[in-house]
Amino acid sequence: MNRNSKSYNAAVIASLVILLLIGIFLSISIGSTRIPLSEIISAMRQGNNTSKAYRIVSYVRIPRTLAAVLAGCALSVAGAILQAVLNNSLAGPSIIGVNSGAGFFAVLITAFFPASLYYTTVAAFIGALIAVLLVYFIARKTGASRMAIVLAGVAVSSFIGAMTDTVLILKPNTAVERIAFLIGGLSGVTIDRLSFASCFIVFSLVISILLSYDMNLLALGDESAKSLGLNVTRIRFIFLILASMLAGSAISFAGLLGFVGLIVPHISRFLVGYDNRILLPVSALIGSIFTLLCDLLARILFAPFEIPVGIIMSFLGAPFFIHLLIKGRRGQLYD
């Protein structure tokens, strides 16, 4: 089968959907209490609030599974967008400061307005947007090379990290509450909190896929894309906002999950190539599967103890990032 053919892409998507469904089932079934499929189905059918299985599934496992699916898909698509828009295969929400920007604003609102739970998503979104625009602006001033963007990201992340630390020191209670958030984890996510963020995620995802062909043109370079009639500045700005909405929303309930936004677009490109029309949906699916898998590992590796999913992601992500750097040094990086 030709790697770029429609049938190949359809086969990839179908396989990923099957893997995702398996992942969802395992995520609902496996945990400190193992619930077999038959029990899940009968508990959900009866809808009996007093049943242990029903309560575990509907109040713990389903929100957690949905959170993994949404966070993974949002962060991966945000990563794929940032890599395409900034023309930098090392860009990802955590690398270019989106995560720390969103995290800082989320910490800020928790510290000063603890009652405003719903505003966390909006705050995280604004934080992500500010960070991404800051990095973009600095990188543009210095020629927007790949290294300039990564370095600008490091600088902005450090600065925001210092501000986050300041808030945490001034408000020590927040520090205790936000450790899980800073590491990134999915335990304790509620449907209420998810529903708000999921609106942002679904909306941004749909718009991103609709505009994905325009994103393809950016790979030709700004001048060629402009001469083809694309409003480059506008489309780049729209995608930066979409990436910030995706990353900010995911971070608002999942915390600072590292590396998923960096790794998944690379795996997706390896599978389906550079056409964003297929790359974005595939990144969304792989991101969800990857996050579900990491969350499962986080739950079962040291059972009955649980470690935050962010730690597992960093364990897997950091070596992959180093692998990319070495590959890039040999001149083999994808672009």
């Binding site: 790979a219 060629s224 550079y274 672009d335």
Partner: peptide, 14 residues
């Protein structure tokens, strides 16, 4: 009007 620049990134496409 079409324009072909001298310097341009090479896209990874067919």
């Amino acid at each position: 009007i079409s324009y072909l620049p001298q310097h341009r990134p090479v896209p990874n496409i067919t």
